[in-house]
Structure formats: C-alpha cells, structure tokens
Deep mutational scan, measured.
Amino acid sequence: MFKRLMMVALLVIAPLSAATAADQTNPYKLMDEAAQKTFDRLKNEQPQIRANPDYLRTIVDQELLPYVQVKYAGALVLGQYYKSATPAQREAYFAAFREYLKQAYGQALAMYHGQTYQIAPEQPLGDKTIVPIRVTIIDPNGRPPVRLDFQWRKNSQTGNWQAYDMIAEGVSMITTKQNEWGTLLRTKGIDGLTAQLKSISQQKITLEEKK
C-alpha cells in the first residue's frame, strides 16, 4: 500500500525546468507551479508516452532531478554507511541512485490517469530550513484521497528550496528505503546496493492501464 502511495505522490513532485522555475526561495510556489507544469506535460505528451513509456525517463531527467536534492536524499538512505564509504564508492552510488530515480519516478508518472491535487495554504517560513507541505491527491475514479507531506529543505548556501522526502501515513519514503535496503547494505555494503540500483534502473517502464 505504501509503495502505491509513494508512486501516486511522485506525480506531483516533478519540479519546473530552470527556464520557467518559480521563486526558488518559496517552496509553496515551487510546489504549486511544479504540480501544474507536471500535470500539463503528462496530459499533453501522452502520444509520446504511450508510444514509448521510457520517454518518461527524459521527462524526469529534464523536469524533476535538477530540483530534487538527489545527493542529500541518497546520503540519508545510506545512513551510517555513508561515512564509511570511499569517495569513489559515493560517486558510483550517487550515479546509480540518480539512474534509479529516473526509472522509479518514471514508473510513478506512468500512473497518471487524470488525477488532480490540492496544496495546503502557504504558511510563514520564518527562519525554518525544513518545511512540510501537505498535498491532497484526488483520484477521478473514486479512490479515497491521498494526503501527503512533502519535505522541502532550504539550501544554506543559495537560499533555494528543494524537495527531498515524502511522508505518507506517518511513514517517510527515506525511512522506507532504509528499511528495504538495510539488509543488503549490511551483507554486501554500498557496492552491493550500487549494483542492485544499476540493475533496477535497467527495467523498462510500463504503463498502468486505467481501472
């Protein structure tokens, strides 16, 4: 169930391209415009997507990853294993993690069937560096609404905000991946996880038929 919630949630996290980005210092504006741009692209490019579902990787690479804190999220997933990894191991892992996100997020976007969304009203940021933004996803086919909290983090150097995690039903996506990959990290280390991520990233994206 959580895996499905995570995939549905990713439908609204794909941010804007650099040329049309919203105010990078306001995570609420980023979330709002990102959702609108993403849904528009999914709707307008269905012919290309249906002809070649792996085209979704391109959308992810162009529109999402430049505005997601990939390395920060990847380091959180590694936890204690990050500090013990060599620079070469980290570089290989982050490259594999990025390719994994292209496949995983692309597969999530393949679930698009006309969903709509509501974003919580903007709250004062103050001096906060981590801000959760509640998004409610509404399914046109009558499924119950899904309420999610996207975690946005302020870059201490640039002042810009980027998304790095999502919490559904009190469970963090980062925590879920830590639990899912924990045994592999304990037995085969970061190299074993890197190899698995490379394998997963090679899987073809498949479209979910409308139910």
Results as ranks from 00 to 15, higher is better:
residue 1 M to A: 00
residue 2 F to N: 01
residue 3 K to F: 05
residue 3 K to V: 02
residue 4 R to L: 15
residue 4 R to D: 05
residue 5 L to R: 00
residue 6 M to A: 03
residue 7 M to A: 02
residue 7 M to S: 02
residue 8 V to D: 02
residue 9 A to W: 13
residue 11 L to Y: 02
residue 13 I to K: 01
residue 15 P to C: 05
residue 15 P to N: 15
residue 15 P to W: 05
residue 16 L to V: 12
residue 18 A to C: 15
residue 18 A to T: 14
residue 19 A to E: 03
residue 21 A to T: 10
residue 24 Q to K: 13
residue 27 P to K: 01
residue 28 Y to H: 07
residue 28 Y to D: 06
residue 29 K to W: 12
residue 30 L to Y: 06
residue 31 M to A: 02
residue 33 E to C: 08
residue 37 K to Q: 13
residue 37 K to D: 06
residue 39 F to S: 04
residue 39 F to R: 01
residue 41 R to A: 07
residue 45 E to G: 06
residue 46 Q to P: 05
residue 47 P to H: 10
residue 48 Q to P: 14
residue 48 Q to H: 14
residue 48 Q to S: 14
residue 50 R to N: 08
residue 51 A to N: 13
residue 52 N to Y: 09
residue 52 N to D: 11
residue 54 D to S: 13
residue 56 L to R: 05
residue 58 T to L: 07
residue 59 I to C: 09
residue 62 Q to C: 08
residue 62 Q to V: 12
residue 63 E to K: 04
residue 63 E to M: 03
residue 63 E to L: 01
residue 64 L to I: 02
residue 66 P to I: 03
residue 67 Y to R: 04
residue 67 Y to G: 03
residue 69 Q to F: 01
residue 70 V to Y: 07
residue 71 K to Q: 04
residue 72 Y to V: 01
residue 72 Y to C: 04
residue 74 G to D: 03
residue 75 A to P: 01
residue 75 A to E: 02
residue 76 L to V: 13
residue 80 Q to R: 12
residue 80 Q to P: 13
residue 84 S to W: 08
residue 85 A to T: 10
residue 86 T to S: 10
residue 87 P to F: 11
residue 88 A to Q: 15
residue 88 A to S: 14
residue 88 A to I: 10
residue 88 A to R: 11
residue 91 E to M: 13
residue 92 A to I: 13
residue 92 A to W: 09
residue 93 Y to P: 00
residue 93 Y to D: 04
residue 94 F to H: 07
residue 95 A to L: 11
residue 95 A to P: 14
residue 96 A to E: 13
residue 100 Y to H: 13
residue 101 L to N: 14
residue 105 Y to H: 05
residue 109 L to A: 00
residue 109 L to D: 03
residue 109 L to Y: 15
residue 111 M to E: 14
residue 112 Y to R: 03
residue 113 H to W: 14
residue 113 H to V: 12
residue 114 G to Q: 11
residue 114 G to I: 07
residue 114 G to Y: 05
residue 117 Y to C: 03
residue 120 A to E: 13
residue 121 P to K: 09
residue 125 L to F: 11
residue 128 K to I: 11
residue 131 V to I: 09
residue 133 I to M: 03
residue 133 I to N: 05
residue 136 T to C: 07
residue 136 T to Y: 11
residue 138 I to Y: 14
residue 140 P to C: 15
residue 144 P to R: 07
residue 144 P to H: 09
residue 144 P to F: 11
residue 145 P to C: 04
residue 147 R to W: 03
residue 149 D to H: 06
residue 149 D to C: 04
residue 151 Q to A: 04
residue 152 W to K: 03
residue 152 W to Y: 04
residue 153 R to M: 01
residue 154 K to F: 04
residue 154 K to Y: 07
residue 155 N to Y: 01
residue 155 N to S: 02
residue 157 Q to R: 07
residue 158 T to V: 05
residue 158 T to E: 07
residue 161 W to S: 03
residue 161 W to T: 03
residue 163 A to M: 15
residue 164 Y to C: 00
residue 165 D to P: 00
residue 166 M to S: 01
residue 168 A to K: 08
residue 170 G to Q: 11
residue 172 S to V: 00
residue 172 S to E: 00
residue 173 M to L: 15
residue 174 I to C: 14
residue 177 K to E: 08
residue 178 Q to V: 02
residue 179 N to F: 00
residue 180 E to F: 00
residue 181 W to F: 00
residue 181 W to P: 15
residue 181 W to V: 11
residue 182 G to L: 09
residue 183 T to R: 09
residue 184 L to P: 07
residue 185 L to K: 07
residue 185 L to W: 12
residue 187 T to H: 14
residue 187 T to F: 02
residue 188 K to P: 10
residue 188 K to Y: 08
residue 188 K to H: 06
residue 189 G to I: 07
residue 190 I to G: 05
residue 190 I to F: 14
residue 192 G to E: 08
residue 193 L to M: 04
residue 193 L to T: 13
residue 195 A to P: 11
residue 195 A to N: 10
residue 196 Q to L: 15
residue 197 L to I: 04
residue 198 K to S: 12
residue 200 I to E: 05
residue 202 Q to K: 10
residue 202 Q to G: 10
residue 203 Q to T: 11
residue 204 K to S: 11
residue 205 I to V: 07
residue 207 L to K: 13
residue 207 L to M: 14
residue 207 L to F: 12
residue 207 L to T: 15
residue 209 E to N: 08
residue 210 K to V: 07
residue 210 K to C: 10
